[in-house]
Amino acid sequence: MPQIKGVIFDWAGTTVDYGSFAPVQAFLDTFGEVGIEVKPEEIRRFMGMRKKEQLAALCRLPGIAAQWEERIETEPGAENLDWLYELFESHLFKSLSGYTEPIGGVVELVERLRNRGLKIGSTTGYTRRMMEVVMPGAAIRGYAPDLVVTPDEVPGGRPRPWMIWQNAMTLDLYPLSGVVKVGDTVADIQEGVNAGTWVIGILEGGNELGLTEAETAKLAG
């Protein structure tokens, strides 16, 4: 096994925002405002992608597309996606600052990794503007990776490997077989596989489980 030189973490559902609730609620509010019913599990199915791409994927689901055509009287094309995404951003920014608390154990883990000489990178489905809200809230509570790369800074988001590769270039992490990607979504796992890194999937506190800390504690109890 090669020497591990760095770890690249996801954000929501992995290092902050236990259960990854900020984007889920914003999507629920967005579709609710235009009278379309969407289920949390449908939203979570595409979590980890760049948020505009996630929105497009949701609009392609048969049930949502049918509701859209009935209420909006047109197919959810690119022009509709633009204003719907603006609506999503408005909902997300109203609440995002309240979802920046590091998940329990993250701050301590990162400290141990740094003490061993590892570099700490990160990728996300959030844009840079969104991360400008998340990063200060996490930093004041003790979590600040060495680098944050967002999908609007590279040719495309997950499952493409570009954000990981940008981390590797900037932090001088080579070879990629000496890098570990950690995330809580299918898109995170695909991103790491496509980039050629080791991959660790997170369940507790993550998107796939989608529970609050109290709900998780009941399962363990």
Score class of each variant (00 low, 15 high):
residue 48 G to D: 03
residue 216 T to H: 00
residue 26 A to W: 08
residue 186 V to T: 14
residue 6 G to Q: 06
residue 131 M to C: 09
residue 37 E to F: 14
residue 162 W to V: 05
residue 24 V to W: 01
residue 85 Y to W: 06
residue 48 G to I: 11
residue 111 E to A: 14
residue 94 K to E: 03
residue 19 G to Q: 03
residue 83 W to K: 14
residue 50 R to F: 05
residue 203 L to K: 15
residue 18 Y to Q: 05
residue 193 V to P: 02
residue 47 M to S: 15
residue 123 T to M: 06
residue 34 V to T: 09
residue 50 R to P: 08
residue 189 I to M: 14
residue 93 F to G: 07
residue 191 E to K: 12
residue 183 G to F: 04
residue 214 A to Q: 12
residue 71 R to M: 05
residue 152 D to R: 09
residue 28 L to K: 11
residue 159 P to I: 05
residue 172 D to C: 14
residue 15 T to V: 08
residue 150 T to E: 02
residue 111 E to V: 15
residue 139 A to F: 04
residue 155 P to H: 04
residue 96 L to A: 12
residue 80 N to E: 13
residue 100 T to W: 00
residue 209 L to T: 06
residue 209 L to I: 06
residue 94 K to Y: 00
residue 205 G to Y: 05
residue 170 T to H: 10
residue 102 P to F: 01
residue 147 L to G: 12
residue 16 V to G: 06
residue 211 L to I: 06
residue 149 V to F: 02
residue 139 A to W: 02
residue 200 I to M: 04
residue 142 G to N: 01
residue 35 G to Q: 08
residue 131 M to D: 03
residue 60 R to A: 11
residue 168 A to E: 02
residue 89 E to D: 09
residue 174 Y to N: 14
residue 118 L to E: 03
residue 188 D to G: 15
residue 175 P to K: 10
residue 66 A to Y: 07
residue 171 L to V: 02
residue 105 G to F: 04
residue 103 I to W: 00
residue 53 E to D: 15
residue 119 K to Q: 03
residue 126 Y to W: 09
residue 57 A to S: 07
residue 114 R to M: 06
residue 100 T to N: 06
residue 110 V to C: 05
residue 23 P to W: 00
residue 40 P to G: 00
residue 91 H to F: 13
residue 129 R to Q: 07
residue 54 Q to G: 14
residue 134 V to M: 02
residue 72 I to F: 00
residue 121 G to L: 07
residue 21 F to N: 12
residue 67 Q to M: 05
residue 109 L to V: 05
residue 153 E to M: 12
residue 35 G to T: 09
residue 220 A to V: 15
residue 146 D to H: 15
residue 119 K to W: 01
residue 14 T to L: 04
